[in-house]
Design a protein around this nucleic acid. Structure first.
Lengths: 351, 351
DNA sequence: TGTGAAATTGCAAACGCTTTAAATTGCTCG
DNA sequence: CGAGCAATTTAAAGCGTTTGCAATTTCACA
């Protein structure tokens, strides 16, 4: 490694006996610079290890080369189970466009919207990825108002302004889950869901309810319990309320895998055999689901490839801000494992 | 939200009828600006929603406000199982210092060192987190040469220059694993390890071998199989070579949980009962280990809190570049689950 | 009311790059 | 051989901050 590296454009220009302007243009590949010069410059740049300063470039171009991901920090025991996959997919999708991903970490108690505002207005990002969409999400309202490039993972139900989103089709998946259970003879379904106003919850619930309505079989019943999303004890309590009813459902659906796995655990504790006494279905296909006995039947939300697509969508928005908003619904794959089966012959009766 | 926001220092200064200099200093809290002025300025800044431009600030201060994490993209099916926790911990540790984390994604086939060089020399980061340390790691050599603030997750064995690192004490953990197994009567231990020259592998192997040597019991045997780290079929083959020996070990240790879980799976396929016929111990404590039957006994590497510490270390290095290199060895916690037990009475003999 | 020192504020340069507008060079052709 | 034009290169401004140094204001005190 030669140690007389060229740190700045000026140094590089001096050694080449050219002006800064010419060198800048040559490196950018402008046609107006003679081909011979362009080659000479880029050769020297490589030779002298020249790397352009990002801050300077950003200051004039207005582009940072970063895409931000809003990431609230949860309590000590909560890590989004698919964060690793999501980030990997985003990174994968961005790297080919020369963009880097950064995490706009939101501390507990800190205002997420305020963090977003700072990121956007300080120019730290050219675009934002907004996960976990809530009804009336103020982050999306802000981004729309600012006309700032963004794509959300998840969608609004009734957006005031159309926005760019990619979402998994929870509606279709939960309808499919019902069909699967119905075909196995289940007529009493339990759903364990959250009480937070996240839109993905709505779609999944609507998918289930819609499928039931469409079936038109009056013998079908749906029992629902819910709990605040990050309150684990309350979640376990909600599960057990369903599990210990006199008319326990023959099948239970967890809004997502963490819930479904908890159902498996609580059922095991209560001596309820899955799948013989109870069928369980989840959503997400997190790694643990494959191992949680007897193996969770669930839907694969394809986080990594969705995140990759999401990155590509965002790049398009950044490059063509005036385009129509793009949307993409990803159909999750049913992953058949061993936690579902035929409904028990007679309705369960505790005691 | 007033819509006549002050986007730049100049706009803010004009409305306050002060010079840019004074406003800048007031916001930075310089004593030399009258307290009354400072209050007036910061009040107006809040009122007008002024957010300083990061690029401009960076250009003059030389600091980006970012910390980078080198992240190679693996093949489509490999996601570091603890990436989510690691990133969460880093974010958590950095946010209180006003730093953001960004991911320097390295595409497959791309040269990691080259990416690092670009990140460092383009000024995109004030410090780097370097995970997965290999023997003679060229990334650390480069960072040392550049005197660029960095902390590695993992350590070199014989560093040419001392470096800042945080590592889990694999040596102690694997010694403890041996003690546990020895106390349960195991005398023939199988180790499934990788063939790559990562230093964590060395420490864990040395911990195991050292404990065996220290025990001084000639009846103890160690059988080792290894495979290239990301070659899953080869990993399964390595496991099965040990599992199907005539003199199968009574206990097997996986270099990390993914391996240990594969051992559980392969043992189950071969009808070998864990823990009655075979004890299995892993390292890392990934989520799936708790569910993989019968529940993996392993060591908790405390990824999240380690990552938080690592962030704090890096912040110190950034702020006091001249300080002595800091190092921190984290003792992993033994997590006792159900995959270990007393050695079977007589040595196993297949067929 | 004038003086000097302390307190407060401002000017201007610099950070490293991109870009507009203008200058220079090289060529073609009458 | 020089006008005219295209090809190539350059000077200079500007992006939004921070900061060394200088200028201005304030105020106690004579």
């Amino acid at each position: 490694m030669g140690d007389n590296r060229a740190k700045t454009l000026r140094e590089l220009a001096e050694r080449l006996d050219l002006s800064i302007t010419t060198v800048s243009r040559a490196l950018a590949g402008h046609e107006q610079i003679a081909l011979k010069t362009r080659q000479r410059v880029s050769h020297a740049a490589r030779e002298l290890g020249y790397v352009p300063n990002r801050a300077a470039r950003q200051l004039v171009s207005g582009r940072s080369g970063f895409v931000g991901l809003l990431m609230p920090i949860r309590g000590p025991n909560f890590v989004d189970s698919y964060l690793g996959e999501f980030i990997t997919g985003l990174g994968e999708g961005l790297v080919s466009h020369g963009l880097d991903l950064f995490l706009a970490t939101v501390q507990q108690g800190q205002n997420e919207l305020e963090v977003l505002r700072h990121v956007v207005e300080s120019g730290r990002a050219d675009g934002m990825v907004v996960p976990r969409i809530a009804e009336q999400d103020p982050r999306l309202a802000y981004l729309a108002m600012q006309r700032f490039p963004s794509v959300s993972h998840g969608r609004l139900r009734e957006p005031a302004t159309p926005h760019n989103w990619l979402d998994s089709d929870g509606e279709a998946a939960f309808a499919e889950a019902f069909e699967l259970l119905y075909d196995h003879g289940h007529r009493h379904i339990g759903l364990v869901t959250i009480s937070d106003r996240m839109t993905f919850r709505h779609y999944r619930e609507a998918g289930l309810e819609g499928a039931i309505a469409r079936k038109g079989d009056p013998s079908v019943r749906l029992s629902v319990e819910s709990f605040p999303r990050f309150d684990r004890p309350e979640g376990v309590a909600a599960i057990n309320r369903l599990l210990h009813r006199d008319d326990r459902p023959t099948a239970m659906i967890g809004l997502f895998d963490e819930i479904a796995i908890s159902i498996l655990e609580q059922a095991a504790r209560a001596g309820i055999d899955v799948p013989n006494d109870l069928s369980v279905i989840g959503f997400d296909n997190i790694a643990a689901g494959a191992y949680a006995p007897p193996g969770l039947t669930t839907f694969d939300a394809r986080i990594r490839s969705s995140a990759r697509d999401l990155a590509h969508m965002l790049v398009r928005v950044i490059e063509n801000p005036a385009d129509q908003p793009a949307t993409r619904l990803v159909r999750p794959d049913l992953v058949l494992r061993a936690s579902h089966g035929p409904a028990p012959r007679r309705p369960n009766v505790n005691e």
